[in-house]
Every structure is written in structure tokens, then in C-alpha cells.
Design a protein around this nucleic acid. Structure first.
Lengths: 194, 194
DNA sequence: ACCTGAACACCGTTCAAGT
DNA sequence: ACCTGAACACCGTTCAAGT
């Protein structure tokens, strides 16, 4: 996706590449516009279900968006202004779900950042995964085998014992662990039970 | 840090830029070598303390490395082969800590991926933060004010009520929530208590 | 074995000029 | 108001050639 160059864009528009500079101040501005319009696309079902389900729904929506537009996450994470645009657009539903969990404001912010950072990290790892599927599990094992036999014993042991990693959804797994952690926060911060 | 170009590297080595191609097959190979040598630098104290402390120590070490070499995380996450090199190097200590927590192998893998994805997401967000300090909190508020007043009500409310976000370490906060979530996994997967 | 230099096919961005 | 074209200062990589 260096396919998006000013010159190529100009070419596919059948226009002199430099015409773009009349409409936008530069390439970063172009990317910000793309980010903005893609995130306007992200629809996460408001309300309905527990706050846990709403966080999961948010995660699923973000992930779907990242899958539909690989490299986009990279562009976002690379440009402070794009981060802002994306964050403001996407965070609303997430904040709402976490507020519904009964968290105090600073915990809502902290928990939302955690979820966003995780989801971005996951999306990036997945975007540049060698082959889809086992999410680089096989290649990790292969890399280990290329190293001296006595190195990295724990990874060898754990990965040697690994059962079918095929069948599991590691995104969902991570998100569920995070949600469990947030549940702990909740009981710590609320006086009674709710 | 597009400062690392083959031509510039050649120049600072006082050598024809193309001489590099005799030693390495291309720029990606160069970056992989850099990643490899930087990660060889990452030292996380083996043993000592609870598994929770060891996970925190690992997180702190990774974070320090990311702070010392901003853009590096971006290069890693951008190149499948670099991911492998970095993962194999860094994951050993993390796997060891999670194994010590008494998790079954597939949970060790899942939890390690979660921690790594979070830490990468955090590092990337921080690397391109506009101004250090509040971690883009101020600019998020500013961005909100540039939008129509009726938009994004939840974010306005929560961020309006936010107390001193200055004083808190949001990396540590997120990591602790994750650790709490992993503790939940543990009690679910072990027969007795340990 | 190691380095050089010219060349190729690209970039983003500027600036003066055209309609 | 909107587009063009030449130019500038870069990229990564190839390939034949030098020592």
C-alpha cells in the first residue's frame, strides 16, 4: 500500500498529480481524510446486551474495519493527527460501554486506552502476518528450529506442547482476558454490588 | 527516522551507498539486523518475585527499549520477518513468567500474545504522540471542542470529569488490568489452588 | 573480495505559468 | 478557480565495471 502515492492518485484520476495540491495541503492531509471517511464507516451497535457484550461488539467492529483496510491502522498509528481523528470517531461507543460498566471516569479512560492499544497491536501484527491462518505460529516454530538447540527452552517446551491453536480465536481470547480484568476493576471501585 | 536510507548510511560510512549491497541483500535485511541487535540488548531480570512482578518487569523492559528506539517498533510491526526475530528474542522471559503462573500451554501462548499486542499498541501510540506528557489527552479534548457541540456526548462527559490524569502511569494501569485478567484464567484452569 | 558509478524507475513538494 | 509542467531533492535497486 505504498500504492497510494500522489503521482499514482493523479494518474488514476486522469489528472496532473500536482492538481491535488490545490485541494489538499499535502499527503498527510490526504491520509487523514481517508482515515476520517473510513472511520465514519465503523458502526458498532449502540446498547443491547451487557457492557461486556458491548465491548466485544466494539472490538469485533474495529477488527472488521482493520481487516477490510489493512495498512490503515499503520497509517493511523504513524500520524498523531490521524490518531486523533480515529480515536474521537471510534471511542464514543467504547466509552459508553465502559461507563455502563459502572467505572469511574479515570478508569473508563484507562480501560478504553487499554482496549484500543490491544486492538491496534493485534491488528498490526495481523496485517503483516506472513501467511494468514495460524497467525505466524508455524513460522515461529520454524524460526526456533533455525536457532541453536539449547536456546529458548521455554518457548520450545510451550510451543511443543501446544494443542490445536488452529481452532481458537486469539483476538477474542485476549479481549476476554481484558474484560475479566476490567470486571476486577469494577468490583474494586464500586461500593456495593450492582 | 526515514533518516535510515541506504544512501545516507553509505554517506555516513564514507562509502559508496551501493557497497552495502555487497554485504546485505537489501534494506529490509538491514532493518532485520538492526532489530536483532537491539533486541539482543533487552534484558529482563530472570526469576525473582511473583509471576505478576515478572510480567511487569518484562513490560517495563520492553517499554524502555521502545522508548530508547522509537520507530523501531514500527519497523518491526511492519515486517513479518522482523516480527519473528523480535518475538523469539523477547518472548522467552515472558513465556517463562506465564508458565510460572501455572497456565496451561495454550493459555501461555494466548496470554503472551495479549501482552505483546498491548505493549506494541501502547508503544506505537506513544511513539507518535504529539507532545509527551498527557499522552494526547489535551489534544483529544481540543479535537472534541472543534466538533459540533452535540457530537460525542459520552467522551465530553467522561473527559470533562477526568481528575488528574497527569499523575498516573497508564501503561502500568493497562498492564495491571491484563494481569488481573490472567489471574482469572489461572483459577479457572487449575484444579486446586496453588 | 570488496567497492564504485552510471542508470532506472520511482517518490513528495515548490513554484511559475497557463486557461 | 482550477489545472499543468518543469524542476528540485530525494528514494531503493540493477548491473557492469573497476581494484
Amino acid at each position: 500500500m505504498e500504492a497510494l502515492s500522489m503521482r499514482r492518485l493523479g494518474a488514476t484520476l486522469g489528472v496532473d498529480p500536482m492538481a491535488i495540491y490545490y485541494h489538499l495541503p499535502g499527503k498527510r492531509a490526504l491520509i487523514r481524510r481517508v482515515v476520517e471517511s473510513v472511520f465514519a464507516t465503523m458502526s458498532v451497535p449502540e446498547d443491547g446486551g451487557t457492557w461486556q457484550d458491548r465491548v466485544r461488539a466494539w472490538g469485533a467492529a474495529y477488527r472488521q474495519l482493520a481487516l477490510a483496510h489493512p495498512n490503515l491502522v499503520l497509517q493511523i498509528v504513524t500520524d498523531p493527527a490521524a490518531i486523533l481523528v480515529a480515536a474521537v470517531q471510534a471511542n464514543e461507543a467504547l466509552y459508553a460501554a465502559l461507563e455502563a460498566a459502572g467505572l469511574p471516569p479515570e478508569a473508563v479512560v484507562g480501560a478504553a486506552d487499554l482496549v484500543v492499544d490491544y486492538v491496534n497491536g493485534f491488528a498490526l501484527a495481523q496485517a503483516s502476518a506472513p501467511a494468514a491462518g495460524t497467525e505466524s505460529m508455524r513460522s515461529l516454530v520454524a524460526e526456533l528450529q533455525r536457532r541453536p538447540a539449547e536456546a529458548f527452552p521455554v518457548q520450545r517446551r510451550v510451543l511443543g506442547e501446544h494443542p490445536d491453536v488452529e481452532g481458537r480465536d486469539s483476538f477474542r481470547f485476549g479481549l476476554d482476558v481484558i474484560i475479566a480484568g476490567i470486571e476486577g476493576l469494577r468490583s474494586r471501585s464500586t461500593a456495593g454490588r450492582q
